[in-house]
Amino acid sequence: MSLIRWSPTRDLAAWPSDIVEMQREINKMFDNIFRGERDESFASSSWVPAVDIAEHDDEYIVKVELPGVSKDDVKITLESNILTIRGEKKQEKETKKENLHRVERLYGTFQRSFTLPSTVKSDKIDASFRDGILHISLPKAEESKPKQIEVKVK
């Protein structure tokens, strides 16, 4: 018999949103209790966007799901191979509580960091928004590209 470690955050998508909301509240509660021990950056995130990362021959492509986030509210930094994306999803306008019928979108600050497997040309990083997805292209530095060497057989 094998034991499977309990993972409270697994498969949340399949849960009704009330439970997801409850989970979020519990996380927030723990968040407050353990704040002193946790790294500052994570504590300041109120939600976590989904990310895809692909490695191509000559670049890394990072995609971040940020629907409705303005490009002015996103900051991308690279520091010794650690890529950090942070920002804020803002509510478009203040709406009186009695005029809100449903609020499922998550608002507030977010931050994610990734260690890239190899060095990139930091001055050639390019980022743009398409359909609510932030695309970041990070060209690899020359020394980290795969090299093909032809060896002649005599």
């Binding site: 470690r5 309990w6 993972s7 409270p8 955050t9 949340l12 998508a13 949103s17 997801v20 979020r24 996380n27 723990f30 353990f34 946790r38 790294d39 994570f42 939600w47 976590v48 966007p49 989904a50 990310v51 799901e65 709406t95 005029n99 809100l100 019928h101 449903r102 609020v103 499922e104 979108r105 998550l106 994610r112």
Partner: peptide
């Protein structure tokens, strides 16, 4: 699992919807 070392995206219904009225 709950915290820092293993960050997972926040999942919700898809699509997440806000409904307001004026």
């Amino acid at each position: 699992e709950l915290f820092a070392t293993d960050v997972r995206p926040t999942r919700s219904v898809f699509p997440a919807v806000d409904i307001t009225e004026d």
